[in-house]
């Protein structure tokens, strides 16, 4: 759940940062997103005025968004610490979803995972560098190179690519308040996931039905992302509605139902059994090695 908090903080930081260049898309994105709060009954309008520091998105809004954009990463950093502390309470999960039964089932984080994660990190850096150095504008929007102008609305306001699925959910609902609730709910639902997924089996590897449902959920997520980039007209609204329906059905109907009904595949006896083919002995010096190196 702390992970979901980190996710929300990241989204907020990203959104606040997108406003800072103060281009057309920044300005109108800020207008659209802050206006979502006006959907809240009774206090909505007041909240929006309070967020803006005025009666429209203007300089005070920009100032406070700048401060918040600077502040939230530190908050995120703090929650990351809580996240690590929480990890030391429950221990980490594994792809098989079964508890370790002895030292042959675990490895020290360093050097094994530091070495392995370095590879992934470098691969990520390569992709990142390719974008930064050869296509810095590909994920942006040309309209943001036009300075913010409150009098000219761009014909098609789109959020940054990573918000597109949620934007599609928002637009799939004809009612403003309903759309805001569903968009917020699409993330808030992750908070209650532990109670929705009632299955005793922790890994999808041994739940073929749930696994198929999860993959379909991923498909619906990307379909929503695609619809979010499209103009709000048919057939995209219909497609977005179907995908939204499945997005929530997966959490609210399919997961609880499968948790009660599905009989999973047999679980392996221990982690080292399937991974090392036949249990395997304790890896030579797996526990002692890092100490020696230090």
């Amino acid at each position: 759940m702390l992970g979901v908090v980190i996710f929300l903080l990241m989204m907020a930081t990203a959104f606040l940062g997108y406003v800072l260049p103060w281009g057309q898309m920044s300005f109108w994105g800020a207008t659209v997103i802050t206006n979502l709060f006006s959907a809240i009954p009774l206090v909505g309008e007041s909240i929006v005025t309070w967020l803006w520091g005025g009666f429209s998105v203007d300089n005070p809004t920009l100032n406070r968004f700048y401060s918040l954009h600077y502040l939230l990463p530190f908050v995120t950093f703090g929650v990351v610490f809580l996240h690590i502390a929480a990890l030391h309470v429950t221990g980490s999960n594994n792809p098989l979803g079964i508890d370790p039964k002895g030292p042959q089932d675990t490895l020290p984080f360093h050097p094994y995972y530091t070495a392995k994660d370095s590879v992934g990190l470098i691969v990520y850096f390569i992709v990142f560098a390719a974008l930064v150095f050869f296509a810095p504008n590909i994920l942006g929007h040309p309209d943001n190179y036009t300075p913010a102008n409150p009098l000219v609305t761009p014909p098609h306001i789109v959020p940054e690519w990573y918000f597109l699925p949620f934007y599609a959910i928002l637009r799939a609902v004809p009612d403003k308040l309903g759309g805001v609730i569903l968009m917020g709910g699409s993330i808030m639902i992750l908070f209650v996931l532990p109670w929705l997924d009632t299955s005793p089996i922790r890994s999808m590897r041994f739940r073929p039905l749930a696994r198929a449902a999860l993959l379909l959920w991923l498909v619906s997520f990307f379909v929503l992302m695609y619809c979010g980039a499209k103009p709000p007209e048919e057939p995209w609204v219909l497609i977005a509605r179907i995908a939204t329906l499945y997005y929530f059905a997966y959490f609210l109907v399919i997961l609880p139902a499968l948790g009660a009904k599905e009989r999973g595949l047999p679980l392996p006896a221990s982690i080292s059994m399937p991974v090392l083919r036949g249990g395997g002995p304790l890896p030579a010096g797996a526990m002692a090695k890092p100490m020696e190196k230090a």
């Binding site: 490895l107 050097p111 094994y112 070495a115 392995k116 370095s118 590879v119 090392l276 890896p283 030579a284 010096g285 797996a286």
Partner: peptide, 8 residues
Amino acid sequence: KRKIWSDV
């Protein structure tokens, strides 16, 4: 990575 994981 290959070297470090080779004994596992």
